[in-house]
């Protein structure tokens, strides 16, 4: 899918201040503290959820966009951890921004929901339905105590304001490609608190197959090769998977440098690739081309090619950067973690 005249005019990220070290989780469950998937992961505070994080990321995006919320025509929120099973977050965000005459939608589409929100907003802007829209990926991922996922399931949000291309753009969309199959490597049934997963089945047939297919598909369609991209961002459930994926597709470590954050904050699910993209934008040069590929279990992958525009130079410093959030941190132990995550059941 080629995209014409649609750009990012604002972006913002958010990562909660709390961290737990994987070695602390390993201590509780008797696992070798050196054989853990990430160093540490972000933990939402007791008063945070995917909605409050989306609000902060969106307010950051608005600061960089230099627009009044009045021209926003849509707010699409992608998350698999909404505070309510029934009652959307998008309308609350609209209320916070003080806008009502808009399209507001919550989207559950596994970890792919954030990029799919982005794709939808691109479509609405590109078709002329709206002048500008907001796409958000946000999650406070759930990991069952003692489960492998507990070592990575983290929290974060990223928000993008997407508009018709103009003079002050941060980046321009070049194309997008999606790839889907029915591959249930991870799921959460209705009414269940924690998800389940297929262990090693989450690798080859799921993560690697879909990201590879979407990335290849996009590059083929646009006639691009890995060396045409300055940066690449993949969905990042851990550090190992995206590193191996980059290698398989022919990208080097330098291209992956800014887009891989899971070692610092863990897996932020629907926000993961979008926070990675935000960090790339925090560091990229004008003209850099970026490949972003998400993955959601059972949902497939979205790939985007994005070119950095010169609006980035004046807008980058208008809101906190991803690393401002990553470096402000407070460590908590497993007891406080359990309190914050409401895992202490009475």
């Amino acid at each position: 899918m080629k995209i014409k005249d649609v750009s990012i005019i604002g972006y913002g990220a958010y990562v909660p201040i709390f961290r737990i070290k994987d070695s602390e989780i390993a201590r509780v469950w008797g696992r070798d503290p050196k054989r853990v998937p990430v160093n540490e992961k972000s933990v939402p505070g007791y008063d945070e959820d995917s909605l409050t994080m989306a609000v902060e990321a969106t307010l950051n995006a608005l600061k960089r966009s230099n627009i009044s919320p009045d021209i926003i025509g849509a707010i699409l929120v992608g998350s698999e951890s909404p505070p309510y099973a029934v009652k959307p977050s998008a309308t609350v965000i609209a209320e916070v921004l003080g806008v009502s005459r808009i399209v507001a939608v919550d989207m559950e589409f596994a970890c792919r929901a954030g990029t799919t929100a982005m794709q939808n907003v691109i479509g609405m802007v590109g078709s002329g339905m709206i002048e500008a829209g907001i796409a958000i990926g946000t999650d406070t991922a759930q990991g069952r105590p003692g489960d492998e996922l507990e070592y990575t399931a983290a929290a974060g949000a990223a928000s993008y304001i997407i508009s018709k291309s103009g003079n002050d753009d941060i980046a321009r969309f070049e194309g997008s490609f999606s790839y889907v199959t029915d591959t249930p490597d991870f799921w959460r049934r209705e009414g269940e608190r924690f998800p389940r997963h297929g262990y090693r089945f989450t690798g080859e047939p799921a993560y690697f197959h879909h990201i590879y297919s979407a990335a290849k598909g996009l590059m083929d369609e646009l006639g691009l090769k890995p060396q045409d991209f300055a940066h690449v961002v993949f969905h990042q459930p851990n550090v190992k998977f995206p590193t191996r994926m980059a290698k398989q597709l022919g990208f080097n470590k330098e291209q992956l440098k800014y887009g891989l954050l899971s070692g610092y904050i863990g897996n932020t699910y629907a926000a993961a690739s979008l926070i990675g993209l935000a960090n790339v934008l925090d560091n990229a040069k004008v003209g850099d081309r970026i490949l972003v590929v998400s993955f959601g279990s059972g949902a497939g992958s979205d790939a985007f090619s994005i070119i950095v525009e010169d609006g980035i130079l004046s807008k980058r410093d208008l809101a906190p950067k991803v690393f401002d959030y990553i470096s402000r941190k407070k460590y908590i132990d497993y007891s406080i973690y359990s309190k914050f995550r409401r895992n202490i059941v009475m």
Binding site: G45, D47, E48, E56, P83, Y84, K87
Partner: peptide, 20 residues
Amino acid sequence: AVFRRYREQGADGIIEYGIK
């Protein structure tokens, strides 16, 4: 100012948000 959860009207009730 940040936007956060304040009160919950029980586990099955609404969540009251506000500025902290």
